[in-house]
Amino acid sequence: MTSRWLCIITQFLTPLLLMLSVFLLLRGHNEPGGGFAGGLVAACALALHMFAFGETAMRKVLMINPRTLSGIGLVVAVFSGFLPALAQLPAFTGLWFDLTTPIGSTKLGTPILFDVGVYMTVLGVCVSLMEDLHQE
């Protein structure tokens, strides 16, 4: 039923869009981007996959119920907010620590965890919305 060109383009474009979404997620703290924009781009990638190959194939790519994913994302975001409270700091304080790897050192912190939570929430909500629209 779906056109062959759509299937071919989807096979190239879905990984590209997913990579772009992760890129947006990771650069979000200092430059434009962030969890919300990254989640929207990832949802677009999955919507494209759903248009080309159908809903069951998209669920296989996602590997998890989108509603469960959005719930996990909320829990992760709230947990990252209350992590500084365990260290006797005001809630939602940004905690940073250096991570040194063989290829260089970088900074990790609770804002990244918060962004990952937002990413998962936005992805789950948008995918479940599009599934409902697709079923109509």
Partner: peptide
């Protein structure tokens, strides 16, 4: 400079609406 990133993301994503409307 950051508007160029927006343009790239828009160019990658925008044909999705056309596909959806075509469907």
């Amino acid at each position: 400079e950051s508007l160029l990133d927006v343009a790239v993301a828009l160019a990658l994503v925008i044909f999705l609406g056309t596909v959806a409307l075509a469907k």
